[in-house]
Structure formats: structure tokens, C-alpha cells
Simulated assay, not measured.
Amino acid sequence: MSKGVRLKSELPGWPQYDDAEREGLIRALEQGQWWRIGGGEVDAFEAEFAAAHGSPHALAVTNGTHALELALEVLGVGAGSEVIVPAFTFISSSQAAQRLGAVAVPVDVDPGTYCVDPAAVEAAIGPRTAAIMPVHMAGQMCDMDALGKLSADSGVPLVQDAAHAQGARWRGQRVGELGSVAAFSFQNGKLMTAGEGGAVLFPDADGYEKGFVRHSCGRPRTDRGYFHRTSGSNFRLNEFSASVLRAQLARLDGQIDTREARWPVLSKLLAEIPGVVPQALDARGDRNPHYMAMFRVPGITEERRARVVDTLIERGLPAFVGFRAVYRTDAFWEVAAPELTVDELARRCPHSEALTRDCVWLHHRTLLGSEEQMHEIAAVVADVLAGA
């Protein structure tokens, strides 16, 4: 165990739960139907999640990756088409397109917010572009003004990857009020969780109905004769997970309030550490759930950053290295990759290249700690970087 400055008290744990989750699980158990066809928990969760995010329709699914894949499929994305994705994101963003046979086209991100650069998106739009996928990195919403205009002018639909953005707002508008499809994740580390799970918001009933049929093996809700209308898969969420998510959703706003209060404190303290640059905020994103407390250490090597993260973990912080640019993974090149080399993509994405080397993030439970703990966290980061 490394010596040096450590946290004086443990940070809040994650996931968080109480009797609301217990009661929900018992409620799901005792209703006698444990899948969504015949049960009531998934339907209730969809209605509550849609209302919380300002959308007319929500479809609960098995996980966030499937949410993205289903959203793209409903929009007609498939072989022969392209989907523009940020180069700096979790691999699911690109794989959701590639699993449908579409080519994922990585573009660069803003070096401050880590969100996709609208100018890079515009430059990448071509005759085969079927969708643009902005990723609301760590809860900071992308420039939805610029991206919305690009979508309207080009006719290419947006698919918001909102895996980090439950409860987020852009200029007072919730994710579901922005007029485009949005996909969410409820994986174990996310802002609300049932271990796994996901959801898709649809701005129209037609999209929701297409999504429902495809997420249920191509089978309409009322079918009794196995008349499968379309291709599809089984992306249905179960009743137990939905009951837990209903409880998680009920406490989301309070947790966001806490993180919104803590990030300005921690960000200011991190910025005072030599060599540390916290993630920038776009003030138009006026409700940020802060899925991650992210910062950069420009000039650090990947090897040194890995040692820093290991030491932060030893000192009591839930720390992680930043995402690797999607094109710097073997998975990206397995199927439906662009006709460009890694070096060519790297030249197009200098900011994503730098983030691959120098970004560090702390799990959002750090921001559920006390204000005093924000000072302790900054002291640990400063001590570890000084001694690395």
C-alpha cells in the first residue's frame, strides 16, 4: 500500500438502495408475472422515465448498448450506411452501429468539454450518413444548438447517446424535449442502475411502436399467433429490474442536486493543482448530472497515468483512466470499419488522441460526498501527482 495523503473517511458507496428497492422487488415478485408482457413494472417505469425526461414515449430494454442499437435500427441504419460518432467515447457508441453493418465514422471532440465537435461532424457528413450520434460526456450535454441545426439542414437524424445524462438539461430542455431519439444506460456504475438495463426515448408514437416490435423478436404486443412482423431480437427488460429502476429514478434529482453543488468546489480545487485541467462546462447545459468527475493532465504519458490511477485507488478514490479513442481498439476494426488507417484517423482527431493519453475520471459517487471530502479528494490527487 502506498504512503502519502489519503482520504480521512470513506466516500458514499454505489449502488445506493433502501426499502424502496426492496418493496419494488417484492411487488414484482408477488404480481405473479415476471416479464413485461403481463406484468406492470416495466410499463410503469417507462411512463415515469418518459415523464421525467420530457418525452412522450420511453421503451425499456436490456442494456444501454442495445438501446443504441435499437434506436439506430428504428431509424433505418444498416449495411451500406454510416454513423458519425465521437472518437472519444465508450466503445458501445461505435459498436452499436457496426453490429448493424453500418460503418462507424469517428470524429474529434472539443478539448474542454470532451463532447463531439460540431464542425468535425459537419465535415464528416456524406451521402451515406444515416445518423449522427452525439455523446453527452459525463453528463455535459453536447452543443445541441449546432447539432440540431446540422441535423435539420442535412436531414440526418440525431441519436443522442445519453448513457451519462439521466436528468440532464440543455437550455432548460430535458433530453426528451429536444426532438430526437435518445438512448440511456442503467449499467451498475450509471447514475441510476439495476445492474444492467437501458431505455430509448422516442419523440413519436410510430418510432416507439417500431422499437417495441423489434425489441420483442419482431412480435407485436397483442400477438398470439406468432406473426412476427419484422426482424428483431429479445431486448425486453424484466419486471424485477424495472421495479428497482423506479426506485432509483425517484431519488435521481436529489442526487443530481448534491453533485451539482459539489462539482464547482472540486473543480476549482483540481484546477489549482499544477498540471491539472478539469473538464470544462458549457453553461447552456444548465442541469448536469455529473456522471464522472473528469480531468486531464496534459503531457502525461499513458504509462505514468496508469500508475497515477493505481495509486489513487490505493488511496481510497474510485479512479479510472479515460476512454481510449475507439479506433485504437481491436474491436473497432473487426467489422464495418472505415477505409482509413489508425494513423489517418489519429491525425483527424488530435484532441481524442490527447484524451486517450491524459484523461482521468472519478466515479460520480465521489460527488455525493461532503464538501470537506472534496478538499480531501483534491489533496490526494495533488499528492499523488507530485510523487508520481
Rank of each mutant, 00 (worst) to 15 (best):
R348P: 03
G232F: 00
R348W: 06
F90E: 14
W34L: 13
A104V: 07
G38R: 03
V181N: 00
R221Q: 06
G316A: 10
A28S: 15
A124I: 05
D282C: 15
D206K: 05
L68G: 04
G78T: 08
L367M: 15
A119G: 13
D310R: 09
M294S: 14
T341W: 10
D282Y: 12
F186E: 00
E372D: 15
P56C: 11
P127S: 11
P56E: 00
E314L: 10
V85D: 01
L100R: 03
D358K: 05
P338Y: 07
A47W: 03
S154T: 10
L368P: 01
R305H: 11
M144R: 15
A293S: 06
A79F: 06
V326P: 01
Q33R: 11
L317F: 05
E196I: 07
C349M: 09
R287L: 05
A130G: 07
D108K: 13
M292F: 04
T258H: 07
Q173H: 14
A247P: 01
K149Q: 10
K190I: 00
K268I: 13
G275C: 06
Y327E: 06
E48I: 01
M141E: 11
W34C: 08
E372L: 13
A71P: 02
L158C: 08
A261L: 13
E82Y: 05
H136G: 04
D143A: 12
M137F: 15
A337S: 13
G189D: 08
Q248F: 02
E196P: 02
G387E: 08
Y291A: 10
L201W: 00
L367W: 01
F323R: 01
K210G: 02
D43S: 15
P12H: 06
H290S: 09
A165H: 00
W170E: 04
L25N: 08
E303Q: 11
P12K: 07
E82W: 01
Q31H: 15
E209V: 12
E344P: 12
I377K: 01
Q95N: 13
G24Q: 04
S2M: 08
D358M: 07
G207W: 04
G101E: 01
A379H: 07
G387W: 05
L355R: 07
G78R: 13
I313H: 14
I125F: 04
R324F: 11
K210M: 08
D18G: 15
I132T: 04
W35R: 13
V105F: 02
D310I: 09
H136P: 04
I91C: 03
S231F: 09
Q140W: 06
A325Q: 13
A87I: 03
L345E: 04
A194E: 02
V181Q: 00
M137W: 07
G285A: 13
R22V: 08
A388F: 02
A386S: 12
G275D: 10
M192A: 10
L252F: 02
R284D: 07
E46Q: 12
Q140D: 09
D161C: 08
F235C: 04
Q173W: 11
L281W: 10
G225I: 14
V335P: 03
C142N: 15
G218K: 11
E48L: 11
R214H: 14
L59D: 00
